[in-house]
C-alpha cells in the first residue's frame, strides 16, 4: 500500500476496508441472532408476535442506544466509559424538570438533549484538545456525570410526563414505537457511514497519523465522535425515563460493561476503524435474546449472566482464531 493517498482515495479505502471485511463477521452475527430468535420462539411460541417482540425491543432500547454511542467512540479507536452516566444525567433531568409539563410544552426536552451533547463535547474536548487518553478522560467524566445525576436526584423517583411515556409505549401508525426507534438508529448509521464525517471517523480510527497526513482534521473529528456519543447516550436517558416512568440516578454503571460487550459481540473492532452501529444493535439483541431465552426456559437468572459471558468469550475467541493460527509461531 502506498503511504500517500489523496483524501478521496483514502476515503474509499477506509470505507472499502470496512465494507470488504465486514460481511464475514456480519453474517456470523446475523446467523447467531436468527438462531437465537428461532430458539426463543420455539420455546415460547407466544413471542412470534409484533407486540411481544416490541416489548422486548423496548426493554433493550436503552442498551441499544448506549451501544450505538459506544460504537462511535470505539470506531475512532477510543472508548467512552461515561455513556451510562450521561444517560442517567438526562434521565434524572427528565424526571425532575419535566414532571408538570405536558403536551405542547415538550420543547423543554430540547435543553435536556443539549445537556447530553454538552457532556459528550466535554469528553471530546478533553480528548481532542486536552490530549488525554479517551480511557482517562471518560473515566473522569464517568464519575463526574454520575455525581451530577445524584446531585439532581439523590434517589430513584421523580415524575415523567405522560407524553414521553406514551412515545415509548405507543405506536407510530400500526407500528409499535420501539421498532421505529431501532429503525431511526439504523438509518442514522446508514447516513453517517456514507457521509464525509463517517468516512473521517473510520479513517481516524484505522490510522490516525495517516488520516492527519491526508488532511483530515483529526481533533474536530474526535470532537464530533464524542459529541454524537453524548447525544445518543442522552437520548437513551430520556427513553429510559419514559420506559420506567421515573428517574434512576444510580442505574448507569450497570449499562457500561454490557455496552462494550455488545459492541464486541456485534463485530466492531476495539482497534478502531472497522465495524458499525448496525452490528452493535445486533450485539445488544443477541444478549437480549439469550436473556429472554433463559427466562422462557424458566432457568434461574444466574444462567443468563453466565450464558451472556460465555457467548461473549466464545464469539471473540472464534473471531480471533484466524489471527492466533496465522501468527502461531510468534508467542
Amino acid at each position: 500500500m502506498s503511504a500517500v493517498a489523496t483524501p478521496a482515495e483514502r476515503a474509499t479505502r477506509a470505507t472499502g476496508v470496512s465494507l470488504g471485511r465486514l460481511p464475514r463477521g456480519q453474517w456470523g452475527t446475523v446467523l447467531l441472532l436468527v438462531a437465537l430468535v428461532v430458539a426463543d420462539v420455539a420455546v415460547q411460541p407466544n413471542l412470534a408476535d409484533v407486540d411481544q417482540i416490541g416489548l422486548l425491543l423496548q426493554t433493550a432500547l436503552p442498551a441499544v442506544l448506549l451501544a450505538a454511542a459506544q460504537t462511535l467512540a470505539v470506531l475512532s479507536r477510543g472508548v467512552d466509559l461515561s455513556v451510562g452516566s450521561v444517560m442517567v444525567t438526562t434521565n434524572v433531568l427528565v424526571a425532575t424538570k419535566l414532571g408538570g409539563i405536558e403536551g405542547s410544552h415538550m420543547w423543554a426536552i430540547v435543553p435536556i438533549v443539549a445537556v447530553g451533547v454538552a457532556a459528550g463535547l466535554v469528553n471530546g474536548a478533553l480528548i481532542a484538545y486536552g490530549g488525554l487518553e479517551p480511557f482517562v478522560a471518560t473515566l473522569a467524566s464517568w464519575a463526574i456525570f454520575n455525581g451530577v445525576a445524584l446531585l439532581i436526584l439523590p434517589t430513584d423517583g421523580g415524575a415523567v410526563p405522560t407524553t414521553i411515556t406514551n412515545l415509548v409505549i405507543g405506536k407510530v401508525g400500526p407500528i409499535p414505537s420501539p421498532y421505529v426507534c431501532v429503525a431511526v438508529v439504523l438509518a442514522f448509521w446508514w447516513f453517517l457511514r456514507r457521509s464525509p464525517l463517517g468516512v473521517r471517523i473510520l479513517a481516524v480510527g484505522s490510522d490516525e497519523s495517516r488520516a492527519f497526513l491526508n488532511g483530515i482534521d483529526v481533533r474536530r473529528t474526535k470532537l464530533w465522535v464524542y459529541g454524537m456519543s453524548g447525544l445518543i447516550a442522552g437520548l437513551a436517558g430520556i427513553y429510559l425515563a419514559g420506559a420506567t416512568s421515573s428517574g434512576t440516578p444510580a442505574a448507569g454503571d450497570g449499562f457500561l460493561l454490557p455496552s462494550l460487550a455488545a459492541v464486541v459481540i456485534g463485530g466492531t473492532s476495539l482497534a478502531g476503524g472497522r465495524g458499525g452501529i448496525g452490528l452493535s444493535v445486533m450485539g445488544v439483541l443477541v444478549l437480549t435474546f439469550i436473556t429472554d431465552l433463559v427466562t422462557n426456559l424458566q432457568l434461574p437468572s444466574w444462567v443468563a449472566i453466565v450464558a451472556n459471558a460465555a457467548m461473549l468469550l466464545l464469539v471473540v475467541s472464534i473471531r480471533s482464531l484466524p489471527n492466533v493460527l496465522s501468527r502461531k509461531e510468534t508467542p
Partner: peptide
C-alpha cells in the same frame, strides 16, 4: 487467544458473578 483485555476480563468477571448468584 488474543482477546482484548477489556473483553476477556468483562467475560470472566461475569462468569464469576453468575457463579456467585448460583
Amino acid at each position: 487467544l488474543r482477546i482484548p483485555p477489556i473483553i476477556m476480563t468483562i467475560g470472566t468477571g461475569a462468569l464469576v458473578e453468575g457463579y456467585l448468584m448460583k
